[in-house]
Amino acid sequence: MAPRVKFKTDGKYEDGILLMKNAETDILQQAMSGSRSAFGKLVELHQEKVLYLAYDLMGDWDDAKDAAQETFIRAFQKLSRFEGKSRFSSWLYRITVNLCMDIHRKRKRQATDALDAETEENLPDLKENGSAFRENTLEYTELKGEIDAALTTVSINQRTAVVLKFFHELSVREIADIMECSESTVRIHLFRAMKRLKETLREVA
C-alpha cells in the first residue's frame, strides 16, 4: 500500500486533493522549464475561473474575455517569477485583479465624467427592478442583476474584495495575498463595501 502523503496548502494539510495537486505541481514544473504545452494544460484547468473573475470585476463578457486571455499571456511571460509561495491559482488571480484594476483606472481617467453619468443613470433602473429586496419576504436568488449593478457603485478595491470573498469564496488571507495588502485592509474594504451595498440595495427596495 502506497504511503499516504500529506500536501501542504496555505498552511493547512489537505490529503483529499493530493493527487490533483501533485499532478498540477508536475505540470507547473514542466511549464516553468519552458514547455508551452504544459502551460496549455494549466490554462485548461484555470481558464473558466479566470474568465468568471474577470467578468465579476469588469462586468462585461467581451472585456472579461480579453482580460482573461491577457492574464494567461502575462502569466506565461512571468512564469519564471512564480516562487510557489502561494497557490498557482492565487497567483493567476493576482494577475487578473491587477490587470482589471489597470484597465478600470485607465478608463476612469479617460472618461471620468461619462462613467459618473452612467452610474447615476443606473440607479433609477435599480430602483425600478429592486422589488425583490424586501424585508422578510426576500427572494435572494432573484437579486443577481441588482447586486451586479450595485457593485458598480463601490470602489474597484472594495468591489474586488467583495467579488473574491462572496463570489469566489476565498478567505480574507487569500484575498490579502491576491490584492497584495494586509488582512486588516481587506476587512476594511469588505466592511465599507457592505455598508455601501446595504445603502444602495435599500434604495432599490
Binding site: R36, Y55, I147
Partner: peptide, 26 residues
Amino acid sequence: ALHTRRRPSPPPELLQNYQQELKTSF
C-alpha cells in the same frame, strides 16, 4: 444576497471562442 448570487453564464459562442483561442495560443 451576495453569497447566493447566481453565477452568470457567458454567451456560449464567446466561451467557445475564448477556449479555442487559448488552446491555439498555448
